[in-house]
Amino acid sequence: MSNIALGRYIPLDSLIHKLDPRMKIIAMFFLLIAVFVPAGYPGYGVLGVFIVSVLLIAKLRLNFIFRAMKPMAFMLVFLLMINVLVLRTGYVLFSFYGFTVYSDAIYQTLYITFRLALMIMITTALTATTKPLDLTLAIEDLLGPLKRFGVPAHEIAMMISIALRFIPTLIEETQRIMKAQASRGVDLKEGKFKEKIMAILSLIVPLFVSSFQRAEDLADAMEARGYVPSATRTRYKQLKRTLKDYIMLFIVLLLLGGLITLAFVV
């Protein structure tokens, strides 16, 4: 569990790391829209090359990204099975035991696989190169204009940053309790159904108890320091946009425009 790659910040020194987090979030949104532009395989090819080069510029190792995608493998197998059962268009690829597999089933599954892979790569490119704290600052800034409509931008950002802050703590805690219960003979992998339920219970109950305790402690600590969400506050860390950020956004928009042209005009 300690090698969860999804959404983890990788402290490296690269051009991508130094970009303004707000601009990176905006760029990520445009890129995610681009994934859903129906530009077919050529479009995905272009997008794929673009994102892989972004990851390389960010000095991330590609096998790190693949590891991030691993949890998806199960989902894709499931998807393939459903597609094979449901989709009955295209030409017949092969059949066995009165069971026919059509080309569209494979085609469709591959299409979705590409889509998911691209989406994971895009989001990883953001989360791996941006400190979680910078990310929440950026979210707060981007939601700022919506404050006028009663969107609690600061509260949302605070909630996200607290949640992010406690993910590693929770993982650590889970591992600790798992080990403690393993010492008491709990076996999460083997045993009868009833034993397994007991095993999971022995993990979840202590986790819940300590999480609530921690939440309460944190709330007390914040209150003791006079935390008021609506208070105006200055920031130690100021976000700054530079020319590089605008160039990056321009390239992304160019790519999105190109894909839309490819999909609807050509």
Partner: peptide, 8 residues
């Protein structure tokens, strides 16, 4: 350490 957290 802090084994009291394993009680359930």
């Amino acid at each position: 350490q802090f084994p009291e957290y394993q009680l359930f």
